[in-house]
């Protein structure tokens, strides 16, 4: 099976869905790729090349370049969704959420409820998350926990190219607004991806590896870091089960609880800040529903409660590392023995 990067997988998902369904449109800043510059309208395809080639194939009525105004992009996309289109809107960095949150939080997320189920909002918002490029405090956050906390939104956080394609197609076919979070350091990560379109259901975690000693839950880039840590731990005789929830809303509680009921020990790894985060949410879930199974306190490995630093040396310390994950697992594994 062909190896494809996350960038290619996302591009393929968009192109295949646009071919299948004429209602699917793409809207955002530079999604056509530098409109107006030297006549090269399809030069780049978004800041990271995900929408490359779509303008050439589908034209300007379906690949809509916008001014730099997130509130207009999200407002237009939410409205278009209610009228029957299936827009895929791009919020270049999730950090820009602030200027368009009304359109997402109070409009798109609420339409179906406010109109008694008579309105559907089949909207996808693709957005970039993550630190690690020295992009500083305003372009490096991982804010999926904010979207997750809003009833009416679904939230997807893929960690590999296979999942990225299947989850994006599922998001486009879903009748509710879906926030699709792409980690900016993972676009070149490759995996086996079928050429055919396929969907992965929301709310079904991926069990990345099996183990009976400690459950480790991680999202996005942290899945790879946790995997690296678990490789090192295996040499010490500690076998971890690694779970990637894939979607934070809905969250696959059953897979998490079943694993913790077996291992009794849990480490949650989250690149986001620790307060009111996915790490906190999952820790609370387990404390609430699997308390009797726990043999050790739940350990969270997260960023500190600070803005993301610009200095590369500080940013490196900020992001959870495989070493920190391994230390947390050792501590949890040791507890009470």
């Amino acid at each position: 099976m062909p190896l494809k990067s996350i960038r290619q997988a996302l591009n393929e998902a968009l192109a295949q869905e646009m071919r299948r369904d004429p209602r699917v449109v793409v809207i955002g800043e530079d999604v056509a790729g530098g409109a107006g510059s030297q006549g090269q309208r399809d030069a780049y395809g978004g800041v990271l090349g995900v929408t490359k080639g779509l303008f050439g194939e589908f034209g300007e009525s379906r690949v809509i370049d916008t001014p730099i105004t997130e509130s207009a992009i999200m407002g237009a996309a939410a409205g278009a969704a209610v009228t029957g289109l299936r827009p895929v809107a791009e919020l270049m960095f999730c950090d820009f959420l602030g200027v368009c949150f009304d359109q997402i939080l109070n409009q798109a997320a609420k339409f179906r409820y406010m109109f008694g189920g008579k309105a559907k909002t089949p909207l996808v918002i693709r957005t970039m998350i993550g630190a690690g490029r020295s992009a500083a405090a305003q372009h490096s956050q991982s804010l999926y926990h904010i979207f997750t906390s809003v009833p009416g939104l679904k939230c997807v956080v893929p960690s590999n190219a296979y999942d990225a394609k299947g989850l994006l197609i599922e998001a486009i076919r879903d009748d509710d607004p879906v926030i699709f979070c792409e980690h900016k350091l993972m676009y070149d990560l490759r995996a086996e991806v079928p050429d055919e379109p396929y969907t992965i259901p929301f709310g079904e975690a991926n069990i990345v590896r099996d183990g009976d000693d400690v459950t480790v839950i991680a999202l996005a880039r942290m899945v790879r870091y946790a995997d690296e840590a678990i490789d090192a731990l295996a040499k010490e005789g500690i076998e971890c089960e690694l779970i990637d929830p894939r979607t934070t809303s809905p969250l696959d509680e059953d897979t998490i609880l079943e694993s913790v009921e077996r291992t009794g020990r849990l480490v949650v790894v989250d690149e986001a800040t620790p307060r009111c985060s996915m790490a906190a949410d999952i820790a609370a879930l387990v404390a609430d529903k699997a308390f009797a199974s726990l043999k050790a306190p739940v350990k969270r490995v997260t960023a500190p409660h600070t803005p993301v630093p610009f200095a590369p040396s500080l940013e490196k310390l900020y992001i959870p590392s495989p070493e920190r994950i391994a230390d947390a697992v050792r501590e949890v594994h040791r507890y009470g023995r």
Partner: peptide, 16 residues
């Protein structure tokens, strides 16, 4: 095995 189940699911997820 879990991988065997995953292989079946990957096949079953394909359009068509």
């Amino acid at each position: 095995s879990r991988t065997m189940v995953e292989d079946v699911l990957r096949y079953k997820r394909l359009d068509g």
